[in-house]
Design a protein around this nucleic acid. Structure first.
Lengths: 191, 191
DNA sequence: GTCTATATTTTGATAGAC
DNA sequence: GTCTATCAAAATATAGAC
């Protein structure tokens, strides 16, 4: 792994753990085993490096979610596969974490990958739910976009609860709660 | 409003906007119109001041939520009253925001008000849902604690979506999605 | 209680040698 | 490409006068 690569990966880890404001160039350099000069040779500064790191994390999240949601099965099964996938709830979401950082949100450039990630995620989930609806899998009153936003929010909010409690349990409860409500609304559950 | 009071209120605002790491003693002093000596006379330092601010925000959140959830009506109505209350989704939650800050989460003292707030919130919602269940308002398979965690998570996650998008809309979608799923499971919806 | 002075460390970078 | 100065500003206090 070359230096630029190590800098990006180190930034990804530190942004995840400490956020944008809490991550200093010095900390990145030490984590990457690179000197000052080296970092400023490859990147113009902290914002550019953070942007590269965030873009990569956004791509990773998107690819992973797509893989989980495109496994076969009914709409409920595919949404549940996304919701129930194993996660380290105490670490939270690499991308979602950035949304709470004002330095990120106030910069159009830095916010873009975050915005795009969640816009895509909500859209993709809405698609799947719409497919389930078209297949008669859900009762027709279910709104695909509202439901998709709810699912995305449960995961992000679950991380907040887990970190507040210092335990993964509230995350799992939240996700189970969502899956149960969704499953109850699917045709399969009506005998 | 005396100096100590202004310092606490200023800290509450800055913690909300910038988080713990992003809030400096100097910024607090300027916002409060107080000098260094004054701040360090009333508080031992940033952690103690932040603790006072966070405790107050936690109490405020709890009191507000209790007021919303104890208005009359069915369980679904009371939960919906909490979910649908007006909020500035782009600003997020004063308490939940702290959960993403490692300096807060890694300190048992600073984490406590955050932990207690969400433990109470989940517990209170679970109670209401259990009451609705006992009244035959929901179908019996609904788990009160899972559902309560889901509701709490939707609100916190809704803030993430709103900030990512730069718009309140995803927050409202998420909340509507949750309310719709809950209402659909209530006895009232079955004709 | 409040103010000013001082101090240490960190932040986020630039300059220039190798 | 990488390294070692160097730097101005901010973060987080402490000391002591008033």
């Amino acid at each position: 792994m070359d230096t630029a690569e190590r800098l990006i990966e180190s930034t990804r880890e530190l942004l995840w753990e400490r956020g944008y404001t809490g991550t200093s160039p010095k900390a990145i350099q030490q984590h990457a085993g690179a000197g000052q000069g080296s970092m400023y040779h490859h990147f113009s500064g902290k914002p550019e490096l953070a942007l590269a790191a965030m873009r990569r994390s956004a791509d990773q999240l998107t690819a992973q979610a797509e893989a989980q949601m495109s496994g076969g099965g009914s709409a409920v099964e595919r949404v549940s596969a996304y919701l129930l996938r194993e996660r380290d709830a105490l670490r939270g979401c690499r991308v979602g974490r950035m949304a709470m950082d004002p330095d990120v949100i106030d910069s159009p450039e830095l916010r873009r990958p975050v915005q795009e990630t969640f816009a895509w995620l909500r859209g993709r989930l809405a698609e799947i739910i719409a497919e389930g609806l078209a297949a008669g899998e859900f009762d027709a009153a279910l709104d695909p976009r509202d439901t998709a936003a709810m699912i995305t929010a449960v995961v992000q909010g679950g991380y907040v609860l887990a970190r507040a409690e210092g335990s993964q349990e509230p995350f799992h409860q939240a996700v189970r709660g969502a899956v149960a409500l969704l499953a109850a609304r699917s045709t399969a559950s009506r005998k």
